[in-house]
Nucleic acid binder design. Structure first.
Lengths: 340, 340
DNA sequence: GTGAAAGCGCTAACAA
DNA sequence: TTGTTAGCGCTTTCAC
């Protein structure tokens, strides 16, 4: 059934409903706010009339008046070309954040990062498009986030904790992820490990440091070489690894990749170069994507709990909107050993 | 740099800016609208002052006044549990739609389908939260979409074209996808094919009919059996196939799956039952996900151009907002033969 | 329990 | 080229 009869011209303002119900506009307003002051009978009558006429409260007038939007902006890097597979991990996180937002009856405004400049995000808030912002990922360098922290913009970030705790983050324990990887490599007797990532991203830098610490602690004088990549797709992993193998004589015996997608690309490149995985080279990814499990060679990887993460991001942001100053949080990190 | 100096209290209304610039409020308004009427010098002066004071136009007042939101709602089924892998295909589509929307300077409100009831969507529009709606997927049955088409709500749908053309869709040529699959199976001499999908979804029904037509045309008296599944995840494909094999004596020699994820689940189930893919059983998926290519067994599948689709969805919706009545469109469909 | 009145910040018609 | 004015539809005092 079409819920709103087409015949009746649908009414668009409280005044009109008020007139029909023979009450004041303010009474209609109270009915829609479910005010306890209001006589239940009056309320029911008003709501019935409104429904019959396809009336809904104008959200913009409401937002203007109350100075509250009930909207949260979620900023996520969307790949500009569709060639590069959209980062599945962030979509998973987006999904979990969205759940948390529905539950709290807030709208989700999906945004792409504009210039990495605090100004853009300040104006999102000052123009009253959203009450707060959730950033899915820090990107390389977080200076602009520190800048943003100096303003009145309420926001939380998925990513590595800021050393100076200038803003609130939720992230996996990246250092631990690095340590688990290092321990695994050490245990397998690996000595020439490649870190295929990007240390400009705070998260990656933490992983890298954990990796180094663990390998050092194990004491078998391993060497870590960095292969810098600009993004974390399969294609990038594949071509970075291929290029590396073409250029260098020394073969790595282990690779720690910045994401599962990268890890899969690395495995493909390795196989094409006739290196056995995991015989000659061990490979460990990050995120435990669903597809990591069903890859050609089920991928060994670091898992983080995105569902919990999504909930935490939302929760922290709401605490902030309530005037609190929430602390950063970590979600646990775990090594999933499969066949690489 | 923090773009807005913290010292100065940031101004929040045009009146205040007008006073500082010694002009009328309407002149400030014109400056922000980039009105050609305005003296460029005046405009520059106003904008400079505004910027200096961290002023931005209040979007809600603007929306209220102009009765335009510059926002499009995108409705997408987000899995309520994180167990089931979020449908990667729709995220890809979301990404492409988002691109199209940025380009046109529109905001994207991400929504989850509430009750499959036209009322909910009518109120999204009548409450002026969005100017139009893009539905990513029809779901099982599209009666409510036909209902919605009888209202004044501007919307377009990713999915199968409605027989009665009551609303505008963009979708892949599902029938052709079915035909390509049928031809391939026929050419391989397959006779007992399983359709693992859900005919309540119009898209699936079209594929299924194409499959049947092609197999009939090939003339080798094949039989098609339906395995109904409620969603299109790996897990569902896996368990549906496992259950089927446990129940039935007759082995299929071909499977046409509702999505690549389902196809991968099917392949796993088949292997566990000691059936060779593609030796004993051919499997064809749908969507050509990035991960389909790097699956355990690179997946044979039907590819559709989501990038083009995203652009078309946005374009059609804008035509509709301009008062036109755009026709439904199809994006091409192609068989990608790999190893299943 | 309900009504009257003021005003949120903006745009656009009209006037100058 | 700029200013004046009248609302857009709502919430929220304050009165009764």
């Amino acid at each position: 059934m079409s819920a709103m009869p087409a015949k009746r011209k649908t009414l668009t303002s409280m005044d009109e409903i008020a007139r029909l119900a023979r009450v004041a506009k303010s009474t209609v307003s109270r009915a829609f706010q479910d005010s306890p002051l209001l006589n239940p009978a009056t309320k029911a009558r008003i709501l019935a009339i409104a429904r019959r006429h396809g009336y809904t409260v104008n959200a913009n007038a409401q937002k203007l008046r109350t100075n509250r939007t009930n909207t949260i902006a979620v900023v996520m890097h969307l790949p500009h070309t569709s060639e590069s597979a959209a980062a599945p991990f962030f979509f998973q996180l987006l999904n979990d954040v969205a759940q948390g937002l529905w539950v709290r009856h807030h709208d989700l405004l999906l945004c792409s990062p504009e210039a990495d400049d605090a100004y853009y995000y300040e104006s999102m808030i000052s123009s009253k498009r959203a009450d707060g912002i959730i950033f899915l990922g820090q990107g390389p360098g977080d200076k602009w986030l520190r800048d943003l922290a100096r303003t009145r913009v309420p926001f939380v970030v998925w990513g590595a904790a800021d050393d100076r705790a200038s803003y609130c983050t939720v992230g996996s324990d990246n250092r631990k992820g690095g340590i688990l990887t290092g321990q695994r490599f050490a245990q397998l007797g690996r000595r020439r490990v490649l870190f295929v990532g990007n240390r400009a991203h705070p998260e990656m830098e933490h992983r890298r440091r954990g990796l180094e610490a663990a390998m050092k602690a194990a004491g078998n004088a391993a060497e870590i070489v960095d292969v810098e990549i600009p993004d974390f797709t399969f294609e990038t992993g594949y071509s970075a690894m291929t290029a590396y193998l073409a250029r260098k004589r020394a073969r790595p015996d282990a690779v720690f990749a910045g994401s599962d997608s990268v890890a899969m690309g690395v495995v493909m490149a390795l196989r094409e170069a006739n290196l056995q995985v995991p015989g000659d080279v061990s490979v460990i990814g990050y995120n435990d994507l669903p597809s990591a499990r069903y890859f050609l060679l089920p991928l060994t990887t670091i898992r983080q709990d995105t569902h919990q993460a999504g909930g935490l991001l939302v929760e922290k942001l709401f605490q902030m909107l309530d005037g609190a100053k929430p602390t950063s949080a970590r979600v646990p990190t775990e090594l999933v050993i499969r066949q690489t």
